[in-house]
Design a protein around this nucleic acid. Structure first.
Length: 707
RNA sequence: GGCUAGGUAGCUCAGCUGGUUAGAGCGUGGCACUCAUAAUGCCGAGGUCGUGGGUUCGAGUCCCACCCUAGCCA
């Protein structure tokens, strides 16, 4: 079972440093963290690297808007990271930044090597240029009329109305969203990586289809998708990748090309290596038991490079990135493991709309991070599938599995052990269904973790937990205990069930440890076992060796509490409230007050997108389980809508039924715990009792548009 | 429009290369129990496996078409 340890260089996608972590980041980290912890438990050496993705136009522009430098913005975001990571027990071995000397050196090196390999080409590109801001405009910063269906206000890459894709230069009446100016066409030289080069394509083909130790390098769905891009014909053909941007740009300068910078997507993945380099150069690698140098480590054939990513960045990690590395004479990734997105109650998460779960709020309302880790793990497998966070399911799953089944085992046995056996391990019976099951299933569970089939690992573990609880019921220890002090036979039977159950609890603790590190640590303390590892199931291990008779236990303390549904209410309400009050505000200025400075300027066209109408409130009712919401039925002229409004603290249903107010009618419907809200009632005020519904003057009728 | 993945009990999901009456957990109905953080055990109800064809002695499991969902591409 234990051969020479594997050496794993693991990464997770670098978060863009223009905002705090969202729940999707946390999910990816939890997936990787579980896998990494598991690998360590089986004796492998892991070096898990993270970093902030710091470059690019969005960060440059956001910093400018806030009146700070990009470095200051990135530093501020970075300083916020640890409380999320620590909060969810996510333990990176190093965290660095793409805006670093290491990344600059590595990026320039890789570029030079690619150039020497003949994979770089310089070509003129004509693009829109903003004459006021004095910069070239990416597609997203140009808006105008769709040349196909003539819808106004469409972005430079594709029309949201008709779906037609085009070049920004095709737009009618284009304008810069940065300055409002009419952009002009201007030509500039760009650098391209020649992905279409036959040698490059041949390499990518081989890389995609390769196996690592007999198993495919990539998940089938990922390989298919990447192959589709690679083998595309005609206008689907794989194109060379533009990797340069003109000044002003917050990025890494291209050597010998004044005014040219690397496009953020070129230097971002190199950040994995930069973080690794920093980890080695700072001595952390050595402290972690790796005595080789950075160069030696990456050159060693036994080192495996593994990237965890989301499905949105498959292209970069399965085509561009391996090709870049290969032709720049660097180590090529062994595996790229792709996961899907997380949805909340079936709705896609969206930061700007306030759906989703704020990881920070989750921690702030006092919810246990291990509940979330467990729930995520219970849903994760090796497929590229989205997983859904469903509040009711979450409560049921955590309370039933963790408290009712797993922890309950120790909780039932601890009093007997203390009272009748001097808190020591009694002798095991000749046969124990539960402990045997743990031994039989250990290997399958181990493989499930290895394959990232966490949901299967949990299913198997819970099957065993069910067996323990059933076995306890068969023995009826509470009856044996009545005369165990005087009846030697009953005392022995009582000892048998205690021994079997507590040994199986130990096995379950080991199985669940990668998912629940803190809980496992407490359980280890009770079991007085020291850190549990998979050596316990190594060849030759037997139930008797697993937990020897006579072993002394510690003091049992409750290990985990149940989820209180009220905490979930708090989680969702605070998220919604925050979003409603200040959609894009940084966490540091969350103080809601009536004296906020006006938000950023918008144009008349922007305002035209907002469909506010006079509405009549036809019905209003309290929402059970939500102490801030009222459920309203409103007439907006041509239709009736259901709207959830956070105004319960200021209004009762009978105060507002029948009155007119204003409703944002084209707000994207949002699924909430209690139903779908199809709009937003407009109100002002700081909150609490001080919420004031807006009303039109007399004469207005439902359906009238505000303009 | 092309492509990819998926549509199995109220909910969340298992069902390997086609093979006896389609499984689990949660929830639900009944019963039992009281050691345990009102935890646990037993019994039951509940599915024409997205729809319609086809291949086969036999199909959630293979083939075709269609519908729906999510996503990728242009």
């Amino acid at each position: 079972m234990t051969s020479s340890p594997r050496h794993l260089f693991v990464t997770t996608a670098l978060p863009y440093a223009n905002g705090p972590f969202h729940i999707g980041h946390i999910m990816e980290y939890i997936q990787a963290d579980i896998w990494v912890r598991f690998q360590r438990m089986v004796g492998n050496k892991v070096h898990w690297m993270g970093a902030d993705d710091a470059h690019g136009a969005p960060i440059m522009l956001k910093a400018e808007a806030e009146g700070i430098t990009p470095e200051q913005l990135v530093d501020r975001i970075a300083s916020d990271r640890p409380k999320y990571l620590n909060g969810f027990h996510i333990h990176f071995d190093n965290w660095h930044s793409t805006h670093s000397p290491e990344n600059t050196a590595l990026t320039q090196l890789i570029f030079r090597n690619l150039d020497a390999a003949g994979l770089v080409e310089k070509r003129p590109v004509e693009q829109f240029f903003d004459p006021v801001k004095n910069m070239f405009l990416a597609d997203r910063y140009v808006k105008g009329e769709c040349p196909n269906c003539h819808t106004q206000d469409q972005y430079g890459d594709a029309c949201e109305a008709c779906g037609k894709a085009y070049e920004p230069t095709d737009l009618i009446n284009p304008r810069s969203t940065l300055s409002g100016a009419t952009p002009v066409r201007r030509t500039s030289d760009h650098f391209f990586v020649k992905l279409s080069d036959p040698a490059c394509k041949q390499f990518m083909r081989e890389w995609l289809n390769a196996t690592v130790d007999g198993t495919p390098r990539l998940q089938p769905a990922v390989k298919n998708k990447a192959s589709e891009w690679l083998e595309g014909q005609g206008d689907q053909e794989l194109t060379d990748k533009d990797i340069s941007r003109d000044a002003p740009y917050f990025g890494i300068p291209i050597p010998d090309a004044p005014g040219k910078f690397f496009y953020v997507w070129f230097d971002a993945p190199i950040g994995y290596l930069a973080s690794l380099k920093n980890y080695f150069d700072s001595g952390k690698a050595r402290a972690n038991g790796e005595s080789r140098s950075y160069e030696e480590f990456l050159a060693a054939p036994d080192v495996e490079q593994i990237h965890f990513i989301g499905k949105d960045i498959i292209y970069f990690h399965t085509l561009l990135w391996p090709a870049m590395l290969k032709f720049a004479k660097q180590k090529v990734p062994n595996n790229v493991y792709v996961h899907g997105f997380i949805t909340v109650s079936g709705a896609k998460m969206s930061k700007s709309r306030g759906t989703g779960i704020s990881p920070l709020r989750y921690l702030e309302v006092g919810m246990n991070p291990e509940w979330f880790r467990y729930y995520i793990a219970a849903k994760l497998n090796a497929n590229v599938e989205d997983i859904d966070f469903n509040p009711e399911d979450f409560v049921a799953r955590v309370n039933s599995d963790l408290v009712g089944k797993y922890v309950n085992i120790a909780s039932r046995m601890a009093p007997f052990l203390a009272k009748f056996f001097d808190n020591r391990m009694p002798a095991l019976p000749a046969q124990t269904a539960a402990l045997s099951a743990a031994f039989e299933r250990a290997n399958e569970i181990r493989e499930s973790f290895e394959e990232r089939e966490f949901s299967r690992a949990i299913r198997l573990a819970m099957e065993i937990a069910d067996k323990v609880n059933a076995e306890v019921d068969q023995y009826k220890p509470w009856i044996l205990a009545k005369d165990a002090a005087s009846n030697a036979a009953n005392l022995q039977k009582l000892g048998e069930i205690c021994a079997s159950a507590i040994a199986t609890f130990k096995a379950l603790t080991l199985f669940l440890k990668p998912i629940l590190p803190a809980l496992a640590e407490q359980a280890e303390e009770y079991l007085n076992s020291g850190p549990l590892t998979w050596d316990l199931f190594a060849q030759g291990s037997t139930p008797a060796k697993f937990l020897p008779t006579g072993h002394a236990f510690g003091t049992f303390k409750p290990l985990i509490t149940r989820v209180d549904p009220k905490q979930l209410d708090a989680l969702f309400e605070s998220a919604n409230e925050a979003a409603k009050k200040q959609p894009e505000a940084p966490a540091s200025s969350q103080q809601a007050s009536s004296q906020q400075p006006p938000a950023g300027e918008i144009t008349v066209d922007d305002f035209a997108k907002i469909d506010i109408r006079v509405a009549k409130i036809l019905a209003a009712e309290f929402v059970e389980g939500a102490d801030k919401l009222l459920k309203l039925t409103v007439d907006i002229g041509d239709a009736q809508r259901t709207v959830f409004a956070g105004i319960r603290s200021a209004y009762t249903p009978d105060q507002i039924v029948g009155r007119l107010t204003l409703v944002l009618a084209n707000l994207k419907p949002r699924k909430m715990k209690f139903g779908t809200s199809e709009g937003m009632v407009l109100a002002a005020g700081p909150g609490g009792k001080d919420i004031f519904l807006l009303s039109p003057d007399a004469g207005a009728t439902p359906g009238m548009k505000v303009k």
